[in-house]
Each structure stands twice: as C-alpha cells, then as structure tokens.
Amino acid sequence: MKTKLFLLIAASLIILACGKKESKITTAQKVKPTVKQKIIGMSQCNLGEPWRVQMNEDIKLAAAKHPELKVIYKDAQNDSLKQVAQIEEFISAGVDAIIVSPKEAAPLTPVIKTAFEKGIPVVVLDRRVNGDKYTCFIGADNKKIGKAAGEWIVKKLGGNGNIVELKGLMTSTPGQDRHSGFRAGIKGSNLKIIFEADMKWLEPQARKEMESALARFKNIDLVYAHNDPGAHGAYLAAKAAGREKEMIFVGIDGLPQEGRMYVKQGILAASFEYPTGGKEAVDTVVDIFGGKKPEKEITLKSHVFTKDNVDKGGKWL
C-alpha cells in the first residue's frame, strides 16, 4: 500500500512539475517586462494537428525576426472553455496583443470582445468569431483552394480523364468546402469522378479506399485527396499495385514536412497550400504596434507547389 501511495505521489509530482514549467515562464515574463519588449499572447485551440503545430512554428519564425517581441504560447487542447480561460489570463496579465485561433465561434466571441474593448489588439486566425469586436481576421478559403485545385487539374489533364476523389471527413467544413470548391472548379470539363470515398483525413484509410478503387477501375488518371496524407496513402496503394506511374496525385495543405516533401520526392504532382497565416498574424501585430490600422479581414493567398517550383517556395495562385 505504501509503495502504491509513494508511486502515485511521485507520478503526480512529475506531472505537476512538467505542467508548472509553462506557467513559471509566464509569471516571470509578467513580472519584469523590459521597457521595449512587447508581449503577444497566442492561444492555439489544439496542438494535436500537424497543421496547427506548423501555425505555431510559423509564428515563432516570424517573431524571431523582431527581437522586441515575446510570444507566450498556450494550447487549449480542443477545449473551448479552456481557451476562454487562457484569453482571460492574457487580459489580466496585460499582454500587448493577442493572437487567437479559436476552436469555436460562439463560446469565444464574448471573451475576445472583452479584450478588444479593453484596447488589446486581437488577431483572429483561421476560424471566425461572431460579430465584429476584434481587430483583424486572417484566414484562408477552402472553397477557393478546392476550386483552384479543380481548375489546375482540368488544365493538367486537358479536360479529360478519370478521377478518384478521397474526401476528408464530410461532416467537417473544410471537407465540404474542398469538395464543393473542387466540383465547381472542374465544372464544364469532361473529367469523370469514377470513385469517391470518405477517408476521414487518415492515411491508412485513404490507402484502403484507394486499394478498392484500384481493384475496380483499370483506368485512373488522377487522385484528388482532400489532404496530403490522404494523397500519400493513395500513392502507397498504387505503388503496391505497381500502378503509381499510370496516374498522378494531388493533395491539399502543403506543409513542409508533408505535402511539399511529397512533391519534392515526386510522389505528388501538386500540393495546394492551406496557409496557416502565422507569419501574416505576426506582421499584422507589428503593424499595429507601429501605429498602422490593419484591414478588418485578410484572406490569405495560397501557393501551389509543383515539382518545378517547390524549391523556389511555390507559386502564388
């Protein structure tokens, strides 16, 4: 019994110690900010997705160019109320600006409004909040990206061909938008969607669905997947069947360690960037500190990465 208790206490101490680190830094920063230093609070709704990890990474890189900026990162672990509490903490700590990538609109609207009305600039990233009580919204448009992908594919295939569409979770907005945008983009061409399946954003699922498509159809010209891992899973399936040369693969997201890498390796013909906006958010905050009034809404432009341009940082759409 004693050993049990001891281990339990030891374990909780370790976990507490791990958790404490983060808050210690914040208090230290709260207590003695140097005169010139500006503090930005960054609240990320969930660091479980590589794309959001990338967003934080982009912010970090952009902020590194401005030595006067100090960014405090918080992860709300997919919990809206936790995110509300984090922003409340930012407000009471008196940060100079807040960047927030909200989990949901409704629960976060009031607290963002409070911060905004207290005069703290708030930059909202990727997902919207209700009303207009924030400084600036920065986001990309999945429909546009889907449409661009569609148009690119029409051009690439010359308007003819059989296409397999591997969809993300169709109950999610990005999934729906990347689907409807794509369909709008290929409208009027002779492209045929011969097989479509929901791969839930997951690579192993995409691979399984692609295997089925391969078993059923002799002629597949192109696979359009709603994210890069999905396209990669489809590629692996085709490669296993010895048919990867017969078709090309197109994905979305364009993260450096996923889509861009696949393009570079020649696995994907193209990957369409879904930009994180991390850099733009930092730039906007710097502008505000410099006394400029930013636009209320910034729609991010995306890159398309293909084999010829990926090393040059892609091409603007």
Partner: peptide, 23 residues
C-alpha cells in the same frame, strides 16, 4: 507519443534548427 514526436508526424522530413526541413 505526442510528447516524443512534438505533435508532428515523424517522417523523412527532418526539422532543422533554422525552421527548414532536410529530407
């Protein structure tokens, strides 16, 4: 798993100190 991987997929893209990737 998330802690060890830093929340990212551990793939053939290796993150370098300057934020770029080595493949």
């Amino acid at each position: 798993a998330k802690w060890i991987s830093g929340g990212q997929k551990v793939s053939t893209a290796v993150l370098q100190n300057d934020g770029s990737y080595k493949y």
